[in-house]
Design a protein around this nucleic acid. Structure first.
Length: 599
RNA sequence: GCUAACGUAGCUCAAUGGCAGAGCAGCUGAUUUGUAAUCAGCAGGUUGUGGGUUCAACUCCCACCGUUAGCUCCA
């Protein structure tokens, strides 16, 4: 219908209109199949659309009902009904939607905004509150490939206090191929999902008895964590950080002073009453502890910047529905630090932090995947933040100023600030496209004052330092989850829990294989052996499923020549080289943090 | 936390109120293999937990635990 040179924008506009129009068809069908539901809203989204319904208590959209709804939708589309736009007065709208409490609420809101007319669209005998745009007739929807996807709950208008509605998600694309490929991509993504790969590759597990949201790192997952920890500690030491160990507990008072108790109580585990007047709590953040280190001795401007770092467990009480594999847990390990500096040092310190993070991201091979978000305060939600407008203004303008200077492309996240200050969040998306914060750098003008942190400046006057709260390599559990998903379990050599697996073809090479493994192990190469009397093919297959970078096959030839035949995980190519050569090359590749297999 | 769905052997899945099963993994034996699954045998279960209904419950009901999708929240 449109020209052959349809631009992507036109195309996407087109499909968004179809999605929107289809949502009316869905609502109409639901109304026919389940007359008792109340209608919410039904906007188009990236992969289709949804519509919210309030269903009578005790009933739900079962697979059978959804099937009926789907058939009904097909019938409605076939009926070739026109979409008729009809702007009406609020009064008339109230009459038409008198049995639809949610629509009435929307009409009220429109009227409050002084809209004299309310948009409606009628399709056959179904009328919905809507400004369009829509296709002109349901026959235009016949070409659209759509499918009811899933049902979930959603609060009316997204507010926790509002009633919980049932949301029906429908996938809708311009062509069958697009729909098919979307579903296929989602299935492929599920295979890389760290929650599936993690246990499969024996990286981590959970135990009902230990508790939800408390991940257990198995030896292979622990290996990855240890590698990340060593890397980050070394790089921080090189950059002037000092590492400390502080208790995972603290008195309630500590968090009352910091403001956590006021602003973050819901995210904290319940208090432990040791005795009267002695209440302690598991820490949700390390900042107050590090502040105590600052306060331990008087500080001069000469001591600044003071960079205190710690890889530290954090305890955050989450609602059960918010937990997700390793990315959202109730006990996690943060590569944390607090940089105490003079205001004039802030910009430089901020940049140094970004340099460190960017260095680490390159090591991990994820530097091109991240996006930057300036997380600012939302003025509408005053009680979420420390009340100090002046300080917020300064903090936010400094943050944005630095970002502009560095020419980092960023988005603004209104309401995403920490309670004590604005932050730069470095975001990554998971396999399903959901965005999460992996690293964060925060500017804090508030907490130092609350703890009365001071330093004596050159002029002999007492001044209050600024604090940069930052994670370098983020929360280790979450970072590992992203790495698992990004690499689909096939980590670069330096991060692989098992770097080489020695496979003996027959039992005649068992001794030689063991010797190789011992040698590699003595050179700090992580190695396993497969000496079973299985076929070579089977041992290769299992080695591949484990994503071992190098499978080292030794048969009679290799044993005679004291050589190895190395199979490269990426290329599948085999290369025979002397044992010494192999050890030299794999050791070098490991030491170089190479992101690519080089043998 | 809320709404909904789900929970059977280590894993993937059967068994729709009437004797809990298969493949892979595991163990034992045979086999001694040249780059993605050798063959045979054995073993493996209080069907997430606890109640209830029933002559009989994996199956129906209730509560709890956990998982998943989303909402809310968030590193």
């Amino acid at each position: 219908m449109l020209g052959v040179c349809m631009s992507d924008e036109v195309k996407s506009y087109d499909i968004m209109v179809c999605r929107h129009s289809l949502s009316h068809v869905l609502a109409c069908a639901v109304r026919r199949v389940c007359p008792n539901v109340k209608l919410g809203i039904g906007p188009p989204i990236d992969e289709g659309f949804y519509y919210d319904f309030l269903v009578p208590e005790g009933s739900s959209f079962t697979p059978e009902i959804l099937e009926k709804i789907e058939k009904e939708m097909t019938q409605i589309i076939k009926g070739k009904h026109d979409y008729i736009a009809r702007p009406i007065s609020p009064k008339e709208a109230r009459e038409i939607f008198k049995d639809e409490p949610f629509k009435i609420q929307l009409i009220d809101e429109l009227e409050e905004k002084q809209n004299a007319v309310v948009g409606t669209y009628q399709t056959e005998n179904f009328i919905d509150l809507c400004n369009g745009p829509h296709v002109s007739n349901t026959k235009d929807l016949q070409k659209v490939a759509w499918k009811i996807d899933r049902v979930s709950g959603a609060y009316w208008k997204g507010h926790e206090k509002n009633p919980m509605m049932q949301r029906i998600y429908v996938l809708a694309f311009s062509t069958k191929d697009e729909l098919k490929s979307f579903i296929q991509r989602r299935e492929e993504a599920a295979k890389r999902d760290h929650r599936k790969l993690g246990p499969e590759l024996e990286l981590f597990t959970f135990s009902d008895l230990i508790g939800k949201g408390m991940p257990i790192l198995l030896p292979k997952g622990a290996t990855i964590r240890r590698l990340l920890e060593r890397l980050v500690v070394d790089e921080e030491l090189k950059r002037g950080y000092q590492h400390v160990y502080t208790p995972v507990l603290g008195k309630k008072t500590l968090y009352e002073i910091s403001g956590h108790w006021e602003h973050y109580k819901d995210g904290m585990y319940p208090l432990m009453h040791l005795s009267e007047n002695d209440e302690i709590v598991l820490r949700p953040m390390t900042c107050p502890h590090h502040f105590m280190i600052y306060k331990d001795t008087p500080k001069s401007y000469r001591d600044l910047p003071l960079r205190i770092a710690e890889i530290s467990p954090q305890f955050r009480k989450e609602l059960s529905g918010e937990l997700c594999g390793l990315t959202r847990v109730m006990l996690f390990t943060l590569a944390d630090a607090h940089i105490f500096c003079a205001p004039e040092q802030l910009e430089d310190e901020f940049k140094r932090v970004l340099e460190l993070i960017s260095f680490l991201m390159k090591r991990l091979g994820i530097d091109s995947l991240v996006s930057y978000r300036a997380s600012l305060k939302d003025d509408q939600k005053k009680d979420k933040y420390v009340d100090n407008p002046e300080m917020w203004k300064t903090g936010e303008s400094i943050l944005l100023g630095i970002l502009e200077k560095l020419q980092l492309p960023y988005t603004k996240g209104l309401g995403d600030a920490a309670f004590y200050g604005p932050k730069l969040d470095i975001q990554m998306t998971n396999v399903y496209g959901k965005e999460e914060t992996v690293f964060t750098v925060q500017i804090d003008f508030a907490l130092p004052g609350r703890f009365n942190l001071l330093y004596i400046d050159k002029d002999g006057k007492e001044k209050c330092p600024v604090v940069v709260h930052r994670s370098s390599i983020g929360c280790l559990e979450r970072t590992i989850a992203f790495l698992v998903e990004f690499y689909a379990g096939a980590f670069p050599l330096w991060l692989s829990p098992v770097q080489a697996k020695v496979i003996a073809i027959t039992e005649n090479q068992i001794e030689y294989a063991k010797e190789i493994a011992e040698l590699l192990n003595s050179k700090m190469i992580r190695v396993e052996t497969d000496l079973r009397s299985e076929t070579l093919n089977k041992k290769i297959r299992e080695g591949r499923l484990q994503r071992v970078p190098y499978l080292v096959v030794v048969g009679e030839k290799e044993k005679e020549a004291r050589s190895v035949t190395v199979r490269n995980r990426e290329t599948g190519e085999q290369r025979t080289l002397s044992l010494e050569q192999f050890i030299e090359r794999i050791s070098k590749e490991n030491a170089d943090y190479s992101l690519k297999l080089e043998i």
